[in-house]
């Protein structure tokens, strides 16, 4: 882990009208680190994650990706920045009118301007990584939820992002399909991808996370290694939450 964090969230604030959803969030994710965010619903976890590629516009503070503030700059800078930040959604959000292969080549061709052969080769490589090379010509609707989510991960990876954001990637899946997605995420981590994950998979957090962040009421309440946060939570709020979920 280098000195400069790959992703740094500094004094991040987000208000929806009168409601303060995030107040003064500070978080650093080092190169190759997997940071896991837990907390009760409504704690602002997803909002924070969505601020990291400006799907939500922060109300204050700064977000640095590899040393560059993504909250400054033009629309073009924003589109270029988004290429460096891969995002995986709870609902997969594959394009239902495009084949699996086209789902993965679309942004490569239109945003990165790769030619067709290069984009398809990259797509096949990524599909191989998530174990779905044989589904390249399938339609999203023909895949199980777990397969769809792995295609969504491949779609994000094909753009060679520096950071991957996961917004409850397994919450919409049947229990027996969760494992396949978590395995892909674990492989990614082992290959050195920088990842920020919002999820309720506590078992996965224990096993794979470098650090766990507990959020509640729009602030980071507690932060530490999985052993620290799960084994001996320091705050009352974290203790109460963990006793409810485990």
């Amino acid at each position: 882990m280098s000195d400069r964090p790959m992703l740094e969230i500094a004094a991040l604030q987000k208000r929806f009208g009168e409601t303060e959803v995030l107040r003064d969030i500070n978080l650093r994710v080092g190169q190759g680190e997997l940071v896991f965010v837990i907390g009760p619903s409504g704690s602002g976890k997803s909002t924070m994650l969505r601020c990291c590629n400006r799907l939500e516009e922060p109300s204050g503070g700064a977000i640095m990706i590899d040393g560059r503030n993504i909250c400054a700059g033009t629309t073009r800078d924003l589109n270029r920045m988004r290429l460096q930040v891969g995002m995986v959604f709870q609902g997969f959000n594959l394009y239902p009118h495009l084949s699996v292969l086209k789902n993965i080549t679309l942004a490569q061709r239109k945003a990165l301007k790769r030619d067709r052969a290069e984009a398809e080769a990259k797509a096949m490589e990524m599909l191989g990584r998530v174990g779905l090379a044989h589904k390249a010509q399938a339609w999203p609707a023909e895949l199980s939820g777990g397969q769809q989510q792995r295609v969504a991960i491949a779609r994000a990876l094909a753009l060679d992002p520096k950071v991957m954001l996961f917004d409850e990637p397994t919450s919409a899946l049947d229990p027996e399909l969760v494992g396949s997605v978590l395995k892909v995420m674990k492989d990614l981590r082992d290959e050195g991808m920088t990842m920020l994950v919002v999820s309720h998979e506590m078992g996965f957090a224990r096993e794979a996370a470098d650090r766990v962040v507990f959020m509640d009421g729009g602030v980071v309440v507690e932060e530490g290694t999985p052993e620290e946060v799960f084994g001996a939570p320091k705050t009352e709020r974290a203790r109460a939450f963990l006793s409810r979920v485990s």
């Binding site: 589109n79 290429l83 990165l112």
Partner: peptide
């Protein structure tokens, strides 16, 4: 969101 998040 999926489209915009991939830089389109």
């Amino acid at each position: 969101e999926a489209a915009r998040s991939t830089g389109l």
